[in-house]
Design a protein around this nucleic acid. Structure first.
Lengths: 139, 139
DNA sequence: CTTCAATGTAACTATACTAGTTACAACGGT
DNA sequence: ACCGTTGTAACTAGTATAGTTACATTGAAG
């Protein structure tokens, strides 16, 4: 199965670092912790910036949160890194045969059920704030 | 974003047809309602068969449910068509830098949170049985 | 026993997303 | 002016998806 992109997990990682070490968080520094290419991190930072979660300082380097860690949830991050305006998690086949009772109604029926499932997931994500994650790195 | 494969929605469509019209459900007939290639349907039928949800009759054609529509949930179907033994919905980047407090712990932390989100979604799916969908095609 | 529609698969294609990479312009302190 | 950093474009390899063609196998019916 195709998984949800690791952009989300890398974005969470990035935000945790920014929250803890705003001054040292250049793209290269974060890339060193995530263990990937700096450009991948810069792209993610761009998405987080566009979503209003962070501000990045071009030229000088570093980034800082635009909201407190209690006010940034996993759902916020999830939405930030999934650029698609089309936010449907479940794909539904289209152009079913309208001459068939099932084909005629399946799209609407599935749309409702899949939306409910996606909402359940998103509600769980919205209950976890960055702050809760940060507390797990202090030991 | 990459959506969950339309195999799931096509599989639900297929099972609804089998439940309603077991005798007429050849791969070609179903493909006509779903509006896709018969081979795509046969592949999905093969997955549903492997999962013990249906039995297919080679040679003669047609298929029938091996469980009643009350006993087949969207979660059963979801699991049937996602062949991967690795059932993690959220991808997590690996090989983070263990010299960093965040990199050292991020995988475990995210694993727990993502699993909770996935479970919330799956629980919602498990609450919807095929029978509930079938009732929406009778009008 | 032959026929023939249907199933079961393999193989191949086009498309799309992902993650990584190179390259380079623009920014902005020092 | 210098130089490390950010911001992007462009390209690559790898992989999942959905569709397609082709063909062997199945099994009831004539």
């Amino acid at each position: 199965m195709k998984q949800i992109s690791t952009r989300l997990s890398m974005a969470v990682h990035t935000l945790c670092l920014i929250a803890m070490l705003p001054h040292e968080c250049t793209g290269d520094f974060i890339a060193g912790s995530v263990n990937t290419n700096p450009v991948v991190i810069r792209r993610i930072m761009g998405m987080l910036k566009k979503a209003g979660l962070v501000d990045v300082r071009p030229g000088v380097g570093g980034a800082y949160l635009l909201r407190s860690p209690e006010e940034i949830t996993l759902l916020d991050i999830y939405r930030a890194v999934n650029a698609a305006e089309e936010e449907q998690l479940f794909g539904i086949h289209v152009n079913s045969n309208i001459k068939c009772p099932v084909g005629r109604n399946i799209e609407g029926v599935l749309q409702a059920e899949f939306q409910a499932a996606q909402s359940a997931m998103e509600q769980q994500l919205s209950g976890v704030a960055l702050k809760q994650l940060l507390s797990q790195f202090k030991e």
